[in-house]
Amino acid sequence: MNPRKRTGGNVVIQSLEQIGNGGLFLLTLLAAIPRSLRYFRETIRQLWFVGAMSLTIIMVCGLFVGMVLMLQLYHVLSIFGSTSASGMVVALAVYRELGPVVTALLFAGRAGTAITAEIGLMRATDQIDAMELMAVDPIAYVATPRFLAGLIAMPLLTCVFCAMAIFGAHLVGVTWLGIDNGTFWSNMTAVVNLRTDIVNGVLLKSLAFGLVVSLIAVYQGFATPPTSEGVAYATTRTVVASSIAILALDFVLTAFLM
């Protein structure tokens, strides 16, 4: 495990090196899944930490995203006298783009940084080396449970985010701005498609984002230079790399799935 050689200089070479190391690390993580089944409780604990503990921020953010989208759309669409379509636009925007992307960004900030910092600190304080001395596989015990937890948590969190966004849109649109309740739902159900919007949009995208964010978080943790400055550096890198990866991947996925 010596992923970062600080050779400096060429950014392209460094990025390629990062991507290559990340890919190899992903294979290592996947190969360690059978071994990490022994630490099943650890996976559950991590799922509780990255998933259940993130619920509050995801729900609040989803609610506000739905509310503000509805507010904006209502005022624009009222120019054309088609405010009843705003619920459906909120649903499409949230399912196809905002839900997975915003959840992934929040997840990277909330859980990804925590994973990186925790593993980085373990490295800085030689806990990883200690595990190896005690014949405990740090990949199977530390890395894979966190990776799996992120992978499982992301789609679930995205679903919660989307549901809250719809709830927020309903709150603002129907309760506050007075769009007809029946029109709101019937327009939405007429346009939203289970396969292209829910499965492709929400589930597939969030699964891909979950994979990328958890991989980056765990990888950066293990690649942390074992100093306190290194932990700070790695945590920052997790957020930056995750955000870029999420948005770039989102474009690629949308281009392929649409």
Binding site: A52, I152, P155, L156, C159, V160, M188, V202
Partner: peptide, 25 residues
């Protein structure tokens, strides 16, 4: 942990079911 995680998973799937049944055709 286990209880909280279980609740989280149930909530996630409930949200998915809600999206799939209430907002799609």
């Amino acid at each position: 942990y286990a209880v909280g995680t279980g609740l989280f998973i149930v909530l996630g799937f409930a949200a998915l079911a809600y999206l799939a049944t209430q907002t799609t055709s």
